[in-house]
């Protein structure tokens, strides 16, 4: 199920890449951002879901995240009384969980 989802997410991402230009467009009026970059919420939850599967933990919750380089995030997870670290990309590809 997760593999199917990842393929779909990758396809969505590929479509987005094909339509993007090399320079980022200027934000629209009314655009907002947070002053500190965190991982998008859906990617944080993707890490949590995958950690539940791989680690067999329940009640996995993202507790912190940061952008380590453009398009790549590290997400810290509270997992089954312990903690785990997940690396995920903008394309929804989970590179590691430890």
């Amino acid at each position: 199920m997760m593999k199917i989802w990842l393929v779909a997410a990758a396809a969505l991402s590929l479509g987005a890449c094909q339509s993007s230009s090399t320079s980022a467009p200027e934000p629209q009026s009314g655009a907002v951002r947070a002053s500190v970059v965190t991982a998008p919420a859906d990617l944080q939850l993707l890490c949590a879901t995958e950690a539940q599967t791989r680690l067999g933990a329940s009640d996995v919750l993202p507790v912190s995240s940061s952008q380590t380089e453009p398009g790549r995030y590290t997400v810290l997870l509270s997992a089954g009384g312990g903690q785990a670290s997940c690396v995920v990309t903008d394309e929804g590809v989970i590179e590691s969980i430890a």
Binding site: P27, S29, A31, V32, R33, S35, T38, S64, L76
Partner: peptide, 14 residues
Amino acid sequence: GVLALGIAHATEVF
């Protein structure tokens, strides 16, 4: 101390 406490996440508008 696992979390990065005290980080401001204030909103900015363009």
